[in-house]
Computed example of a mutant assay.
Amino acid sequence: MHKARAFRPFKSLALLLASLFALCLSVPGWAFQTRIVSIPSTAMNRAFGATVVLPDDYARGSGAARYPVIYVLHGSGGSYADWTSNTHIGKLADRYHVILVMPDGGHESWYIDSPFDPASRYETYVGTEVVSYIDAHFRTLASRETRAITGLSMGGFGALRIALDHRETFGAAGSISGAVDPRNCEDEPGIDRVFGNPARHADFWTRNAIVEDADGFAHAHIALTIDCGVSDYFVQSNRALHDKLIALGVPHDYAERPGGHTWPYWSNAIRYQVLFFATSFRHNGWHSPARQV
């Protein structure tokens, strides 16, 4: 007669815990740090919030390693908290060993220094003051070769505008679903406050439209990436910009993917853009801390 084998709960529990531990080790951990900082603006005589995401090895390292920086701008009506609230962008800081900075650009600033509203000086703020603050307070690689800027919608316009006007600061730039022709946005509430009346100041609207200033990229030597969803209402103006860049012989990365003017599209697109920038940094001689170990 066979004896029944006794059930050993402690041994089974130990095996279960060991299995769970092994599973945890096989799943990549994300230990990036998110900080909210207040960055002052002399140009606008006030301070604005900004989100800074530091890769995990920023804190774990020796304290000597310095990192490239990618500035990521929000869209119309948004804030510095948009990207971290709606996407998993923080994981990209860990994956590519970069610092991500998301400054506040106001609700409808279009990231320009408006001649019609002297209190709206967001190009100076983001393109100069924010960069100076980040370089002074974090371990950055403070060169144009290791600094990039991108953004969505209004922020896509702003990123390209700032990159063109501050080409000594940014060596790479991108646009996601960018409003590259603000003349298509005349009905946007508040846009005339910074661009002026579209009828009386049509020349200012045209002069600042990225599609009309594509030749500015011909001699800027900026690593450029642009994408837009095929269902996005800005896709035609992005195609027009792409065609002009081709005609001018400007090297750039251009993509259209399924999707519209929505967070699911932007959440996906930012992954490709950060990869593009990290590749650009490496081409310029940067080696991530992970590769230096």
Rank of each mutant, 00 (worst) to 15 (best):
residue 166 H to I: 02
residue 47 A to C: 06
residue 80 Y to K: 03
residue 78 G to S: 07
residue 3 K to V: 12
residue 233 Y to L: 15
residue 47 A to L: 06
residue 244 K to T: 02
residue 48 F to D: 04
residue 246 I to C: 14
residue 38 S to M: 09
residue 247 A to S: 06
residue 39 I to E: 02
residue 81 A to R: 12
residue 91 K to T: 12
residue 64 A to Q: 15
residue 50 A to R: 04
residue 263 W to S: 06
residue 68 P to N: 04
residue 70 I to F: 09
residue 194 V to N: 09
residue 173 A to V: 02
residue 105 G to T: 01
residue 171 G to E: 09
residue 51 T to Y: 01
residue 11 K to F: 15
residue 209 A to Y: 03
residue 112 I to H: 03
residue 59 A to H: 14
residue 86 N to G: 05
residue 79 S to I: 03
residue 65 A to T: 04
residue 287 H to L: 14
residue 24 C to R: 15
residue 97 H to T: 13
residue 52 V to C: 00
residue 13 L to V: 11
residue 203 D to S: 13
residue 80 Y to I: 12
residue 130 V to W: 00
residue 107 H to F: 15
residue 149 I to C: 00
residue 269 A to S: 04
residue 111 Y to W: 08
residue 45 N to F: 07
residue 125 Y to L: 05
residue 280 S to V: 11
residue 162 I to S: 00
residue 133 Y to V: 06
residue 204 F to A: 10
residue 181 D to W: 03
residue 251 P to T: 01
residue 137 H to Y: 09
residue 37 V to Y: 02
residue 179 A to S: 13
residue 163 A to D: 02
residue 77 G to M: 11
residue 148 A to L: 05
residue 66 R to A: 10
residue 238 N to W: 00
residue 207 R to S: 11
residue 254 Y to T: 04
residue 256 E to A: 11
residue 90 G to I: 06
residue 113 D to P: 10
residue 258 P to G: 15
residue 61 G to W: 05
residue 91 K to A: 15
residue 58 Y to W: 07
residue 187 D to W: 08
residue 70 I to T: 15
residue 284 N to L: 05
residue 83 W to F: 03
residue 214 A to W: 05
residue 293 V to R: 04
residue 230 V to P: 05
residue 187 D to V: 12
residue 157 F to R: 03
residue 115 P to K: 01
residue 125 Y to Q: 06
residue 116 F to G: 08
residue 4 A to G: 08
residue 249 G to T: 03
residue 101 V to L: 00
residue 137 H to E: 09
residue 58 Y to V: 04
residue 75 G to L: 01
residue 56 D to M: 08
residue 40 P to S: 07
residue 39 I to S: 00
residue 206 T to Y: 09
residue 118 P to R: 13
residue 91 K to L: 15
residue 137 H to W: 04
residue 38 S to K: 12
residue 220 A to H: 07
residue 136 A to N: 10
residue 119 A to K: 07
residue 36 I to D: 06
residue 70 I to M: 11
residue 175 S to V: 00
residue 47 A to I: 08
residue 240 A to M: 12
residue 241 L to A: 04
residue 200 R to I: 10
residue 84 T to G: 06
residue 155 G to V: 00
residue 245 L to V: 02
residue 187 D to M: 09
residue 238 N to R: 09
residue 287 H to S: 14
residue 218 A to E: 13
residue 280 S to G: 10
residue 11 K to W: 14
residue 132 S to P: 11
residue 50 A to I: 01
residue 279 T to M: 10
residue 71 Y to D: 07
residue 255 A to T: 05
residue 152 L to V: 10
residue 34 T to L: 10
residue 182 P to A: 02
residue 149 I to V: 07
residue 165 D to N: 08
residue 269 A to D: 04
residue 210 I to T: 03
residue 225 T to S: 14
residue 35 R to K: 14
residue 103 P to H: 01
residue 165 D to S: 10
residue 230 V to F: 10
residue 131 V to E: 01
residue 38 S to L: 05
